[in-house]
Amino acid sequence: MLSERIQQIHTEFESDISKVSDLKELENIRIKYLSRNGLISSLFDELKNVAKEDKPVVGKSLNELRNHSTNQFNVLKEKLESTSSADGEKIDLTLPGVTKVLGSKHILTQTLDEIKIIFKGLGFSVFDGPELESDYNNFEALNFQPDHPARDMQDTFFISKDFLLRTHTSPVQIRVMNSHQPPVRAIMPGRVYRNEAVSSRSYCMFHQVEGLYVDTDVTFAELKGTLVSFARQFYGEDLNYRFRPSFFPFTEPSAEMDITCYLCHGKGCKVCKQTGWLEILGCGMVDPNVFGFVNYDAEKYTGYAFGMGIERTAMLKYGITDIRVFFENDLRFLKQF
């Protein structure tokens, strides 16, 4: 009987399709069951021989068989196609993908960016200044008296009697104070030059970030708080710190800030010269003489200033032992960061 044939072909189809593993076998299934001369089509041909009263039922189950098997076929076809190429061969998914070259900022720029983000978050503006400076801005207005040994602290490249390559970013303090009235809160990053012999530890050119805050009630305690906040954000929350008295002509009192050596955690190692401490910056309260040079009222205003070397900071953070590597621009170095 036809309804038995339908049942039988259904079972055969299910069995056959369950064994299919590639598109070629699937095509054979299509030819066997679903093509114009396939088994299911031939069942439709037999429908005319069925008794009229049985036709609706048998016809319905035949349609169901056709829809079911066509559907099964399509689902499997899609599945097989998605894992193989058109000609039915397997593809090698392990072949390398197509990559794009991503450029990168110099590690010194990246380090400065990190520093900048922290200070901008603390309400600092960012100012720039020239590298070829006047002796006045670089030394005199910063309270370096002429013929004073303090000038020996910074070996200078001279361009003429009154012009030089700035030895620190501090002259930008003078420029900013000359053009703005308090409150002034700014950092001033830039390139500086020192006439020092080139070695793994020093180069004739490097980068600094200067900081300055002048207002009516700025205290040394605030300087400490601000710089400790910076250091913790930059080097890590769990660090210890200390401020040691030092000397800079443009700050009084002056200090140097040390943090726990990140390598040995204060136990003493080669990097910190067994002291357990790393010096990270110089700072102090703006010297009243400097306020005199920029016509700020030194009775009314107080301020702090600080400065740190970016190379040194990056060397500490990334374990770089030779400063010259920053300026060789070897692509193999640049690509690391």
Binding site: L102, G103, S104, T109, M205
Partner: peptide, 29 residues
């Protein structure tokens, strides 16, 4: 008012690196 005089240079650097360039820093001397 807040200032950032280095912002434009930062934009240039961002543009350059997104185009696949690596930044160098050379000695001006």
């Amino acid at each position: 008012e807040k200032f950032d005089e280095l912002e434009f240079a930062d934009r240039i650097r961002n543009a350059a690196t997104s185009l696949g360039f690596f930044e160098m820093i050379n000695n001006p001397l």
